[in-house]
């Protein structure tokens, strides 16, 4: 073993301040450098980048659209649900006192807010006026209509149509009640549709998420393959897997963020286009509701895209980089 010559410099050691304990660049600066390089690489491959961003944008738009439709329907329902009520038809023999007694019993039940009583004579007059059959109805020997109680539903008791159905079931068991009808049963169908849309949005979101992770992961895996030589050499001279993976993580995140932003913009456009149509539709049901503001959903799409991009890049790059052994 040869003796050392500590007084001599390494041939590559520059004079002056340079030494083994040279100044290191800050971790933040390293991240900035890698992020800039990833952005530059994406810019250089503009066509491929645009195609990937478009794919992500449209894929994220689909569940977002279903969510916005469901919210719109929900908003419309809230506008027209006030029309939900329960009509209670008393037996023909019921007297005025019986009607008052049944009304008092109904008001003690959950979901009943107020009661409007329509006596048989008023009901017959209204029928005659609406059908234009005043003469024919006047010829009747007795009034065939029962006393009717219109029960308004308490809006705080939960979903109005469900409350009305439950209330109707309770009223059916009361003495003096002949039949009960829930007005606005179509609301239940719309609520079922709204519930279906909400489930569809969740399912679609899950499928789109898995699809995007796969597609983005494949894009990143191909990018790793393209730079296989660089990765191998870098690992050979001391780069860790985390160091090598960093640019790919930025690439995935940038693609996801851009895709999410595109989805938010597309959603904004679609909502703007559909707003007047939706208002017309809700108007037909007597509701002044409009499409709900989608700022939260739109804002969520961008970070959601970024998170999906990062996750896809993390999984794909680490697996691919591990295989690039020097």
């Amino acid at each position: 073993m040869s003796p050392a010559q500590p007084e001599r410099r390494h041939p590559n050691q520059p004079t002056g301040s340079a030494s083994r304990k040279a100044k290191r660049v800050s971790p933040l600066a390293v991240h900035w450098r890698e992020a800039t390089r990833a952005a530059q690489r994406l810019w250089r491959a503009r066509a491929g980048t645009a195609a990937t961003v478009l794919l992500i944008g449209i894929a994220l738009l689909l569940p977002a659209l279903v969510v916005s439709l469901q919210r719109a329907l929900q908003a419309g329902l809230q506008g027209v649900e006030a029309q939900a009520s329960v009509s209670v038809y008393l037996t023909l023999e019921s007297s005025n006192d019986d009607a008052i007694q049944v009304s008092e019993q109904i008001l003690t039940l959950d979901g009943a807010e107020s009661i409007e009583r329509i006596d048989p004579d008023a009901a017959l007059a209204a029928l005659a006026a609406s059908l234009g059959l005043a003469d024919s109805l006047a010829a009747l020997s007795s009034n065939p209509l029962p006393t009717t109680l219109l029960v308004s539903i308490d809006a705080d008791a939960g979903a109005l149509s469900e409350t009305a159905t439950a209330l109707a079931a309770s009223i059916r068991g009361l003495d003096g009640v002949d039949s009960v009808a829930v007005e606005g049963a179509w609301l239940q169908r719309l609520e079922a549709l709204s519930s279906l849309l909400a489930r569809a949005a969740r399912l679609l979101g899950l499928l789109v998420g898995v699809g995007l992770l796969t597609a983005l992961g494949n894009t990143i895996r191909l990018a790793v393959e393209e730079r296989r030589d660089e990765i191998r050499v870098s690992k050979l001279i001391g780069a860790s897997d985390a160091y090598v993976a960093r640019p790919f993580l930025y690439t995935g995140t940038f693609l996801g963020l851009a895709g999410g932003l595109l989805a938010a913009l597309l959603l904004l456009i679609v909502v703007a286009v559909l707003t007047s149509t939706a208002q017309t539709l809700f108007g037909l049901y007597g509701s002044s509701a409009t499409l709900p503001p989608l700022a939260t959903l739109g804002l969520a799409l961008t970070p959601l895209g970024g998170a999906l991009g990062w996750t896809a890049a993390y999984v794909a790059s680490h697996r691919a980089i591990r295989r690039c052994e020097p």
């Binding site: 520059p14 002056g16 040279a22 290191r24 660049v25 390293v30 160091y243």
Partner: peptide, 13 residues
């Protein structure tokens, strides 16, 4: 670059 050396020092080396 992998060692995280300052760019100016890196350039000199």
């Amino acid at each position: 670059e992998i060692s995280g050396l300052d760019p100016r020092e890196s350039q000199r080396r």
